Structure formats: structure tokens, C-alpha cells
Simulated scan of single mutants.
Amino acid sequence: MDDLRTSEAWRVFRIQAELIDGIETLNDLGPAVSIFGGARFKEDAPYYEAARATAGLLTRMNLAVITGGGPGIMEAASRGCFEAGGTSVGLNITLPREQHPNHYQNRSITFRYFFIRKLMFVRFAMAYVIFPGGFGTMDELFESLTLVQTKKIRRFPIVLFGTSYWQGLIDWLRTEMIPHQAIAPGDLDLFHLVDTPEEVTTIIGDYLTRCSQFEGDQRKGVA
């Protein structure tokens, strides 16, 4: 029992250390967008190139790009940002397979715990762009929707890339979850569905403009 207590106590210290390291590493990051997507997409996949192009456009808007730091879509987004001369942040995770750091990160952290890593994604991003992916990608999508829906975080752009990939899920939300009153019809307005990198940047650019106008009104005392 004493060994168990000691182990659990040290786990708390490891969690605390990861949290502090993440905050200190990213505290001066500035405006950033988190880009998610599957690790299994190869370099010749259309979604890989789309993620690379999207990250490049966002970088040219003076935004940093945060990814999971691994292969596939994560590598594509890191690469697009890196090649455009931006700040490419990789929030890596220790996993038994699939996850290995890509070579396009100029700011990198490796996490042991998923929940600390997920906190960093949402804490330092002003938008999410979600490309096709697996369970991990779905986890990030639905966590972000839950946090916005329950007003635990500010409402920000959640952009799903790839109509053909996401449409079946969206149809299921509309035909099953809404009729069962599991979600409200308006909850489908919490995300955007796009097919081009330019659409992504338009949505995020509009959001940045609204934020700037709101901050200006606040300074002027406008309600």
C-alpha cells in the first residue's frame, strides 16, 4: 500500500510538471490555430497537401500553427507552417505506436498525459481546423464542441475540412441526435464545413476581424 501511495503521489508531481512546462513553453506564443487530423495519411494523399497548404496560408496571416507533432496530417500542417517561416508547435505524445515527432517543428513539447496535451491545444488556440482522422481526431472534435456548447470556453471557429469525409457524421447528428433531443438544432451551428484552404482562412480571418472590433469597442467603452 505504501508503494502505491508513493507511486500515485509521484504521478501528481509528473502531471504538475507537464502542466507547468506546457504553459511556460507556449506562454509567449501569440495567436495560434490548432490543426488536427489522422496520423495514417501519406504524403501523396490529397488531405495531406490540403493541410500543408492551409497551414501555409494561416502562417501568412501571422498565426502560429499547433499540431500533435506526429506524422500524417499533423506533419503536413507542421510542414506548411515551417516552410512558410512561421512558428510550428508540436505537442507530441508518448505512444506505443504511430506517434513519432515530425521534422517540421521549431517549438516542441512531449507529453505523457493526454489530458494535459489537450488542455494546451485549447488553451493556446483561437481556432480549430479538423481534417479527417481517427478516434483521436474525433476526440478533439467532440471535446471542443462540448466545451463551446457548455460555455466552458469562448466560442471560436471549429472548422471541419472535407465534406465527403464528414457529411455522414453530420447527417447522423441531424437525423438521430436532434430527434432524440440529445443536442439542440442550433448546436450544428457550432462548426463550419469546408473543402478548400481558402475557405478556412476566410472563416478565421472574419473571426479575427470581429475580435479586433470587439476589443476596440471595449477600449472605447461601447456596450
Rank of each mutant, 00 (worst) to 15 (best):
E198V: 03
A51K: 00
S34V: 15
G68I: 03
R174H: 06
Q213A: 06
E215Q: 05
P96I: 06
A17K: 09
Q167Y: 05
Q181Y: 10
I203A: 14
F191N: 03
V129Y: 09
P157A: 01
R112K: 08
P197M: 00
H103D: 14
V159P: 08
E49M: 06
G37C: 01
G30V: 15
G37F: 04
R11H: 07
Y207S: 08
H100Q: 14
G37M: 05
V12C: 06
N92M: 11
Q105C: 01
Y207F: 07
K42I: 03
T137R: 11
I109P: 03
L58P: 12
D44G: 04
T196L: 14
I203E: 05
A9Q: 00
G133S: 12
K118N: 03
T146V: 12
T196R: 14
L29G: 13
S88P: 01
T175F: 01
H100C: 08
T163M: 13
L188T: 00
P157M: 09
S7N: 06
L4Q: 14
T202D: 15
F156N: 15
G133I: 02
F214D: 01
I109H: 03
K118R: 07
G68L: 12
K220P: 01
G68F: 08
K151Q: 10
M1Q: 11
R5F: 11
I178C: 09
L63Y: 04
Q105W: 12
I158R: 08
R154Y: 07
M1T: 02
T202I: 03
L193Y: 08
Q105I: 02
F121A: 10
S78G: 12
F114M: 08
L193W: 09
R155Y: 07
E43P: 01
I93H: 01
T137Y: 11
L63R: 01
G216M: 02
L119V: 07
M61W: 08
R60F: 04
V33A: 06
L58I: 12
Q181I: 11
T94E: 00
D189T: 05
L91S: 15
E199Q: 15
L29K: 13
P157N: 04
Y128I: 01
Y104R: 02
N92K: 13
F142M: 01
N27K: 13
F111P: 00
S164A: 05
A51I: 02
E143N: 00
T87P: 09
R5D: 14
M120T: 02
L160S: 06
G85C: 03
G22C: 12
D187S: 13
